[in-house]
Nucleic acid binder design. Structure first.
Length: 272
DNA sequence: AGAAGGACCTGCACGC
DNA sequence: TGCGTGCAGGTCCTTC
């Protein structure tokens, strides 16, 4: 489901609602996939912590935890939403949805719930180090560093944009949308793009991500933020999900191919 | 080492 | 109605 703008929207929404609250108890489902830290370990470690800031790093949501007393060791709960994950703040009387894998009961009486039908999402308890993410932040990286990421790379630029250890936070929708806005074919070899085209891509990626954050993200099928609200950036999509429809710029039919195992949408006339 | 391809899951839309 | 197929916002592991 969620890429950088959706994760940012969710993290901000959860932050507004639970910052300063405390964890009273924690429950986890019996599935093994969603947990990088064993559930029993989290269930005993989490109660008693106060929730600090909830923020986005790449596609991860980082929940900063502070102990009520004692040392100031860095402790964080990391949430990755995978394709279908949701992080919801609910009153306890709201029915627990199917595929709920974690419930944190809070001192205010509310619950922080992690729901994920496909179980591609992950929860992890981190102690000691502060999570920095696998790659660089697309919104703050300089044009020079951005260009440097692709030097010598023989893979397609679309595949490079999806590689989280280079840039983290970009997923399938915003890879396609930023390449359209930069007029670059997704199949171009990353390491052979001119400096000028890479600088155009850096700019269009930043612009499209910021516009999507302002719109509350893209809701293609079921994405909702912490308040259960859909985003509306999907109405501004120029290529993603528009196979066979006319390009909004030149009216050429939008083409769909499979690249890096993902559906890839582009305008054969505008993108070269 | 870098790159490609399949595996991991459930749900939904579609065609027959 | 029901069943099979293909597709989905993402990683992760294996193989070449």
């Amino acid at each position: 489901m969620p890429e950088l703008p959706e994760v940012e929207t969710i993290a901000n929404g959860v932050n507004r609602r639970v910052r300063g609250d405390s964890i009273v108890s924690a429950w986890f489902s019996h599935y093994k996939e969603p947990f990088k830290t064993p559930p029993a370990e989290m269930a005993s470690a989490l109660p008693g912590f106060r929730i600090g800031k909830v923020r986005r790093v790449g596609k991860h949501i980082v929940v900063d935890l502070t102990a009520k007393s004692g040392r100031a060791t860095t402790r964080q709960l990391l949430v990755h939403l995978g394709m279908t994950g949701k992080l919801l703040v609910s009153a306890p009387e709201v029915p627990v949805p199917p595929h709920t894998h974690a419930i944190l009961q809070l001192a205010s009486g509310r619950e922080l719930r992690f729901v994920d039908p496909r179980r591609f999402g992950r929860l992890q308890f981190m102690e000691g180090a502060s999570f920095a993410g696998p790659g660089r932040e697309p919104l703050t990286i300089s044009p020079d560093d951005f260009a440097g990421l692709f030097r010598g790379r023989k893979l397609a630029i679309k595949a490079a944009l999806l590689n989280q250890s280079l840039l983290h936070g970009v997923g399938n929708i915003y890879a396609d949308e930023s390449l359209f806005r930069a007029k670059i074919r997704p199949t171009r070899v990353a390491g052979r793009l001119s400096r000028e085209r890479l600088s155009r891509l850096h700019k269009s990626l930043r612009t499209v991500l910021l516009a999507a954050i302002r719109a509350g993200g893209s809701s293609v099928s079921d994405y909702v933020d912490a308040d259960g609200e859909a985003g509306f950036f999907q109405i501004q999509h120029k290529v993603y999900g528009r196979e066979g429809l006319p390009c909004r710029v030149c009216r050429t039919s939008i083409r769909r191919i499979v690249l890096a195992g993902r559906g890839t949408h582009y305008c054969p006339h505008c993108q070269t």
